[in-house]
Amino acid sequence: MAVSSSVEPDVSRVAPKPGRDRPPNPYFRNLSSKFATVPMILTVLVVFVGGSIWTVVFSFTNARSFPTGEFIGWDQYERLFRTKRWAISVRNMAVFGSLTLVFNFVVGFLLAVFIDQKIRFEGVFRTIFLYPFALSFIVTGNVWAWIMNPAFGLQKAMRDLGWESFSFDWITNKDMVVYALVIAAIWQGTGLIMALMLAGLRGIDEEIWKASRVDGIPKWRTYISIVLPMMRPVLITTLVIAASGIVRTYDLVVALTQGGPGLFSEVPAKYVYDFMFGGNLAQGLAASSVMLLTVGVILIPWAIVEFSQRDKNK
């Protein structure tokens, strides 16, 4: 994308030579860049689109370990939507996803602003905040599993210190366990959001700040009304990265709660994986088809609105 958009305007600005009566064939413009994108286009078609179609097709079969079943219609989907575990997974995804997104964005942005104040030891703070992101979700999950476990972790430590009524049992409490996931996810992910936001803030022209200072606009107002709207591209990139991370949440749950207590911290990706390699391939594929459809339902309208607006602005 970047290649073609930066080159295209130059070409279109070139006026057709007077001697020629035929406009240049648009299909042959920028031939080299078009040629260069062919491998990527093929990859997208074969791997992404082809893989998705394969997934959807085999979700209508009774395939068990191998994709070799016979077609059985909507049975896998009927089972999927009858299953309580799937219903819990979807609900958890919604709660976990929205909370993680909101907290990560708010806290990440505040941290970025804090670091942007030209403070001393900026590098030290940046490293500290970004450090959790260097750990995998498996490590994060295991560490928090011990911290939050009431029999071994924080609760026991506080009670041993004499605070007998202290209680922190979210990880074993069926109503609170999804918030325990949120805590670990925020701890791990906020640093990355901060780094991306900080890059966005550093991209803001110093002149904007000078102008707002001259006009006597308070700092917080400048951030919210001027800087944030200018950071729109960074915000969208960050949103896409964070959201895709949330949809594929799997390892954190496996390490932190194993889906427990009971089924109360199950997530869709874990459902897909567990059934795909747990002797019912088609059931896993049906679940992933539903996830694909959901993402599509959200993304496609957004993409249409986003890209059509950009065309109008040109």
């Binding site: 309580k84 009971g262 089924l263 002797g279």
Partner: peptide, 30 residues
């Protein structure tokens, strides 16, 4: 019995054990 069915029974057991709102009748029906 196959693993897929055992996994489903595991889910029923886990849910029944953790959620006191699931009745004996519901779990047995599943």
């Amino acid at each position: 019995i196959d693993r897929d069915s055992l996994n489903q029974i595991r889910d029923i057991y886990n849910d029944f054990f953790a959620d006191l709102d699931v009745t004996i009748e519901e779990a047995q029906a599943d």
